[in-house]
């Protein structure tokens, strides 16, 4: 009644605006998130479209004579401070100890690492959210599901991963080919061993939310539980899910590299950022660039995803939006 006086007849029947437009408007205002999104897009494009321009085979080892001549080339910028360095414009980032082009390996490795990171994060997020919501909302499931979570937290993960790889690698490789099999294996292993933190956080939030009056109001109008969860509970636990999602990508990339390092991940000649990093550690003092580049790539990817998650979380919260 107090505001009814400023009714503008022109706007009176304006249909509701799509709220995803509001989300995008707010996301654009978050400078960190916008920069993060641009950087992440740049990395993804570079890694997936780059090989079309820089058409080197990442796994190609030249015949022995050429290999000895070409191997251990330094990156092109090394001449800036070391005039006698072995550099070549044919290999701007240098070559490794088997004369494989490092730029091509970085791009091929990025494809695998980013895909593994995103896929494993999505899987662990789905599992964690599902288990957290079920445990928090349905009292009967709370005990069994949270004990299951404790069980997974108490498992020694690395030995478990190694056993699982040994058991299933041949099986999956037979069905999906050596690389596809390992990809599915690693994604599912990382996914099902990293959902516990998300589940715990989500359960706690759901426990608090389901006693709020708007959930009781939804029940009083006869909304079934599944729609209460989808409409009222999930949108309100989005913030903690976002945070654990962005952290999850980093964990997934790093776990994958640890597995590859131990020889239980992708085949040794198959590049991933983690693999490149670990291969280079032995001769780090001689060739620091081989550690710096993959390390930098992992850090920047994780950081940019973190900022995207931060911005998305703010943009999805209507209380922050519009400020």
């Amino acid at each position: 009644m107090t505001d009814a006086t400023q009714l503008d007849p022109a706007n009176e029947y304006k249909p509701p605006r799509n709220q995803w437009l509001d989300v995008w408007d707010q996301f654009k205002k978050h400078r960190g998130a916008l920069i993060g999104a641009i950087v992440f897009l740049f990395i993804v494009l570079g890694v997936f479209l780059g090989p079309l321009i820089w058409a080197h085979d990442a796994q190609f080892v030249p015949p022995v004579v050429d290999m000895i001549k070409l191997r251990d080339t330094r990156p092109i910028y090394t001449v800036l401070w070391e005039s006698g360095a072995k550099v070549s414009w044919a290999h701007p980032l240098g070559t490794d100890n088997l004369a494989r082009d490092y730029l091509a390996r970085m791009m091929a490795g990025g494809q695998v690492s980013i895909t593994v990171g995103l896929a494993a994060m999505t899987l662990s997020l789905l599992l964690g959210t599902l288990i957290g919501v079920l445990a928090g909302y349905f009292k009967r499931l709370d005990g069994p599901l949270m004990r299951l979570t404790d069980l997974f937290l108490a498992l020694p993960l690395l030995p478990l991963l190694l056993v699982a790889v040994l058991l299933f690698r041949e099986l999956l490789a037979g069905a999906l080919g050596p690389e596809g099999g390992v990809f599915v294996l690693i994604v599912s292993l990382v996914g099902i061993t990293s959902w516990m933190q998300t589940a715990r956080i989500v359960r706690g939030d759901v426990l608090a939310l389901k006693e709020r009056e708007f959930v009781i109001a939804a029940r009083s109008m006869g909304t079934p539980s599944r729609r209460i969860v989808l409409r009222h509970i999930l949108p309100n636990v989005l913030s903690p899910i976002m945070v654990s999602a962005t952290l999850g990508i980093a964990t997934a990339i790093i776990t994958e590299s640890a597995l590859s390092f131990l020889g239980f991940g992708f085949p040794p000649d198959f590049p991933t950022w983690g693999r490149l990093l670990f291969d280079a550690v032995d001769r780090m003092t001689l060739y620091p660039e081989r550690v710096i580049w993959p390390g930098l790539a992992i850090s920047i990817t994780v950081l940019s995803v973190n900022y995207i998650g931060d911005g998305l979380r703010d943009a999805l919260d209507p209380r922050i939006r519009g400020r």
Partner: peptide, 17 residues
């Protein structure tokens, strides 16, 4: 049968228009 709640802040989902 419907209900009107005590705390109007808490009885409305903050993420819905």
């Amino acid at each position: 049968m419907q209900m009107v709640f005590q705390d109007p802040q808490a009885s409305l989902n903050p993420r819905m228009t």
